[in-house]
């Protein structure tokens, strides 16, 4: 069987399991998440060579994050989760930005980016209020904000990446 086909079948099975877990609590959510990242890590190990270490590191870090998610109660575990997650997101941002050359941005682009940041920062602050209710720790709060803002940066870089390559795709047809 083709590797690509196998990956698609496994992904479809995982997706069905994830959808089923919405309705029926067959497996605990954290274990399902851990299993998902574990299976994808195995595929990643097959794909990546030592040359693309960063790509493999993302999958490895996400797997470790999910492992910590299973034991989410202690403060050290939560901090560890955030640190590992920050590393994985940073690598993804680095890999994405490396491919993008400086994009041309108009005033409307800047305005919409600012609006995007404003709305999402508000959501982040709102979430932090709930976060603060259960855990009162400055370090964790800092990690929480770093993680949140990095996620926002990742979304933006993914957006610019897709714009660049979508344009390239259109150009190849014109």
């Amino acid at each position: 069987m083709n590797f690509k086909t196998l990956l698609s079948i496994v992904a479809a099975v995982i997706l069905i399991f994830s959808l089923a877990s919405l309705q029926f609590e067959i497996i605990a959510n954290q274990w399902l998440r851990l299993g998902t990242s574990g299976i994808f890590l195995l595929f990643a190990l097959k794909i990546f060579t030592s040359r693309n270490f960063y790509g493999l590191a993302v999958f490895l870090l996400l797997f470790l994050c999910d492992l910590l998610l299973v034991f989410w109660e202690s403060l050290i575990i939560i901090a560890g989760y955030y640190v590992l997650h920050i590393f994985s997101i940073s690598i993804l941002v680095f890999l994405t930005l490396r491919e993008i050359k400086v994009p041309k941005v108009s005033k409307i682009d800047i305005l919409s980016i600012l609006l995007f940041f404003l709305i999402n920062t508000l959501i982040l602050f709102l979430l932090e209020e709930y976060f603060n209710q259960s855990i009162d720790n400055n370090w964790l709060r800092l990690l929480f904000y770093t993680n949140g803002f990095l996620i926002l940066i990742l979304v933006l870089s993914a957006f610019f990446y897709s714009i660049r390559f979508a344009k390239m795709f259109l150009h190849s047809f014109l």
């Binding site: 877990s21 998440r33 998902t36 990242s37 994808f40 990643a44 794909i47 999958f59 976060f131 259960s134």
Partner: peptide, 28 residues
């Protein structure tokens, strides 16, 4: 974790598996 959203309790897994799949595909 921080807001009580019982209805969407396990929906993150769906997006997570889709996200990981497409990440791997793009690497391929």
């Amino acid at each position: 974790y921080f807001v009580d959203l019982d209805k969407f309790k396990y929906i993150d897994n769906v997006f997570y598996s889709v996200g990981l799949y497409f990440l791997l595909r793009s690497y391929m």
